[in-house]
Amino acid sequence: MRMLLQLSRIIDAINTVIGRLAGWLLLAAVVISATNAVVRKVFSISSNAWLDAQWQLFGAVFLLCAAYTLLKNGHVRIDLLTVRFSKRTRDLIDVIGHVFFLMPLTTLFIYHSYPFVINSLRLREASANAGGLLVWPAKMLILVGFVLLFAQAVSETIKRIAILRGDMVDPEDDSERSPVNETIESPERSLLDK
Rank of each mutant, 00 (worst) to 15 (best):
M1G: 13
L5S: 14
L5V: 14
S8H: 05
S8M: 10
R9P: 10
A13G: 15
T16Y: 13
R20D: 14
G23R: 11
A34Y: 13
T35P: 03
T35E: 12
A37E: 10
R40A: 15
S44H: 15
S46D: 12
S47E: 13
N48Q: 13
L51R: 08
A53D: 08
L57E: 10
V61W: 04
L63C: 04
A66E: 01
A66W: 06
L71D: 04
N73H: 11
G74M: 05
V76K: 08
R77L: 05
R77W: 00
I78D: 05
L80R: 01
L80C: 00
T82E: 09
V83K: 05
F85N: 00
S86F: 08
R88Y: 01
D94V: 02
D94T: 05
V95R: 08
I96E: 10
F100D: 08
P104C: 06
P104S: 05
P104V: 05
T107Q: 05
Y111M: 09
H112C: 09
V117Q: 02
N119T: 10
L123W: 11
R124F: 07
A126S: 13
N129C: 01
L134D: 05
V135L: 06
A138P: 02
K139Y: 10
L143E: 00
V144N: 00
V144W: 02
L148P: 01
F150D: 00
V154M: 09
E156Q: 08
T157Y: 03
T157R: 04
K159L: 07
R160G: 02
I161T: 03
A162K: 07
I163F: 02
L164I: 05
R165C: 03
D167L: 05
D167K: 07
M168N: 00
D174F: 11
D174V: 08
S178C: 08
E182D: 13
T183Q: 08
E188A: 12
R189F: 15
R189I: 12
L192E: 14
